[in-house]
Nucleic acid binder design. Structure first.
Lengths: 401, 401
DNA sequence: CGTCTTTTGTTTTCCCTCGAAACATAAGGC
DNA sequence: GCCTTATGTTTCGAGGGAAAACAAAAGACG
């Protein structure tokens, strides 16, 4: 099992000070919306200008920070040298989903340096072939990257339960895979020496909402992220951090019971949320083929099609019951709808917010809000890259020399 | 994870090293099941004996650690001086519940130094009078304490939603109180200068399971704690830490929807867990008066009384539906039943574990387990004291001079 | 146009804390 | 009584940040 917190509680020495402060300086620059100068960093961290400058120099030398051209703003005093996160550091984010393959590279400023996204039905596909194709996409992508770019890490987002430490995909019903050792498959298909960390798609996608760039917080610090794929995954974000259970089995919102007397689910339970608000449930209720896009359903519903409207109402009701339970337990009134639910967010919001207002205990004090995820598709790939880049923010000293 | 959260990101200076290492040394001694020597501390933390000894000396001088008599164990080498957490530091834990008032003092070793517990029906009581009585109990308790004992903090556990920062009890339906400014009431009734931090009863009680003494981890690091009072509160414990939402509205497990078509709840929703597994629901279904103890119900059920057995079955079913949802979302398969549910734990376990095995997605990989909370009554009071003592562990330097 | 003011970045000196290693101490083993 | 062993203490040196003076690069202003 993964144990992030079992860091050997080692005594802090002099060098710990240095690494801590390096991380603090880097984080301060990354967190800022505008470029900071050495002097700004000193003010923001409470260090002296001397100390801040020394640390910045070191980070600039290691390409973790860039000194950029200064604004020709007419201001008094010696002109400052603006600093930005290093554009020459990047991370690779990969995603395998039931409907797509994606490879994307983000730099430390959070910009997309390059990407390949391919729509493709991968339900029940052969893992070996799928990973080979992902490897081809990745190779193409890396070929196109500027030569100066240095990849510091990589991640893979998958729609299922993973054992991150072991690199094993335990269960991905939508893909029809289980107990898959991805480490080996990835080693064969991803170019040399780059270690790829496995992660759950919803957890990683939630990062793209929590952070708008590495170290820079998004507008919402606490929310529940729902990733509507064929199933429904979820992630709890508290104070900007994705709360991952110790086991990897967190976030299975799709199998929260909405009606114990409801139909049987393939998981063995009855009345699971997925049976009412999963992608297939929506399309079936609307009388659409299972290959249809959620956008089509949204258009039909907006045009007044009764079957489509009914599908939305049923989905909103089921989401209301399940999410009310989650909100009551974790106390976070903000829900971000991602995946195919994002396209339905505008339609779902009014009825869903009403159900939540009725069923959530804290509704009178803090009214639950429903938001649609913005961003591009394959958010999991971006999230995987973000996580790798966060590793640099957490331990910058490791990337100096 | 290095720092909890909302610490002003200030640069680390020399003195930060010292305070960090002081905390590490203190924590190391507290976490150990047996007394450690200076040399043991050095080995456990990776510091040199010189450094460890210097820090230990400082903590001993401040009474945060005690040098105790050494075991007359015949061993080679210079005999070590065993260290224990300081017995002269204590914290006051208070609890106001629908059925009792409690005041308890724990020392840094986690021992009960003194306590007063009073059974009393406080439903719909007058806050002023209740707090006055609590003040009397507290004064009696403090009078009996050894003169050498120094109180480092205090906490109050209440069965409801609190705004910890403001010291306001927002909503406590079982007491019939709401929007109550406890800071003022406590100031009047608790002896001089001691600041009392408000906390939710379930959150605090969960600490008594997570830690068996300040800084010393209990056998379970990840679990869901259920506090069965008249309502049902809950707390999620991840890696030994109680996960408190940013709002204080977390843990309302009692209002998770078990059956959307079920009866109306006073909260405005339908089919809430409380209506099936709350204290009153159990007693009513068993045909007992609402003043009866849960022990009576347990005895009846064990004796084969059909109404009592039916009440247990219904409760187990409802808990199964609700807890399955929570376990699916937070991924923690261990549930500790506290409050009146602890007395029913043995009866609830078989049917409840069966329901969970069926409804929890991860059941085949990690079978959900139900445990009954051990410990004495008024666990909230102990938890409140533990929290205050944890403050000493986190910032020992503040208690040196 | 030269000087003053203001802000930024750099250099110097000092102090704090830890590591390294030698030293001192208190026992058992023989 | 001397050797061995483990613990605790003292001394010295080095790393890294604070404080404060210093240097630099611009606008402001007479």
């Amino acid at each position: 099992m993964s144990q992030p917190s079992t860091d050997a509680p080692s005594g802090a020495r002099q060098s710990t000070l240095r690494t801590t402060n390096l991380a603090l300086v880097l984080h301060t620059v990354c967190a800022s919306a505008r470029p900071l100068s050495r002097s700004d960093v000193a003010a923001a961290t409470g260090m002296t200008r001397a100390t801040a400058a020394r640390l910045v120099d070191e980070l600039v030398a290691g390409a973790l920070l860039d000194e950029v051209e200064r604004d020709p703003l007419p201001r008094r005093g010696r002109p400052a040298t603006p600093l930005l996160p290093g554009a020459r550091l990047g991370a690779l984010g990969l995603q395998v989903d039931a409907g797509l393959l994606a490879a994307r590279v983000l730099d430390l400023r959070g910009r997309v340096v390059g990407e390949r996204v391919e729509q493709r039905d991968l339900r029940g596909s052969d893992p070996t072939g799928t990973f080979a194709r992902l490897g081809t996409l990745t190779a193409e992508l890396l070929d196109d990257l500027p030569a100066a770019l240095r990849l510091v890490g990589a991640g893979l987002a998958v729609p299922g339960v993973v054992d991150e430490a072991a690199g094993v995909l335990l269960r991905a019903p939508n893909l029809g895979w289980s107990d898959l050792d991805t480490a080996e498959l990835l080693h064969a298909c991803v170019p040399g020496g780059l270690e790829v960390v496995l992660g759950n798609e919803a957890d990683l996608a939630a990062r793209t909402v929590a952070d708008e760039a590495p170290g820079r917080a998004g507008p919402h610090r606490d929310f529940l992220y729902l990733s509507g794929q064929i199933g429904i995954g979820g992630a709890v974000v508290l104070d900007g951090r994705v709360v991952t259970g110790s086991s990897g089995w967190a976030g299975e919102v799709g199998h929260v019971c909405v009606d114990p007397g409801g139909p049987a689910c393939s998981c063995g339970s009855t009345g699971c949320l997925e049976l009412y608000a999963g992608r297939h449930a929506f399309l079936r209720a609307a009388g659409l083929p299972l290959e249809a896009a959620s956008g089509e359903l949204a258009e039909l519903a907006r045009a007044g099609d009764p079957a489509a409207a009914g599908a939305v109402d049923t989905g909103a009701w089921a989401l209301g019951v399940a999410l009310a339970g989650v909100v009551n337990v974790v106390g976070i009134p903000t829900v971000v709808l991602g995946g195919h639910l994002a396209e339905l967010a505008d339609l779902l919001r009014p009825p869903l917010e009403e159900h939540l207002a009725r069923r959530v205990l804290s509704a009178r004090w803090q009214r639950p809000r429903i938001l649609g995820a913005q961003g591009p598709s394959a958010a999991g790939a971006s999230g995987a890259a973000l996580r790798a880049l966060d590793e640099v923010l957490a331990h910058p000293a490791r990337w100096l020399d």
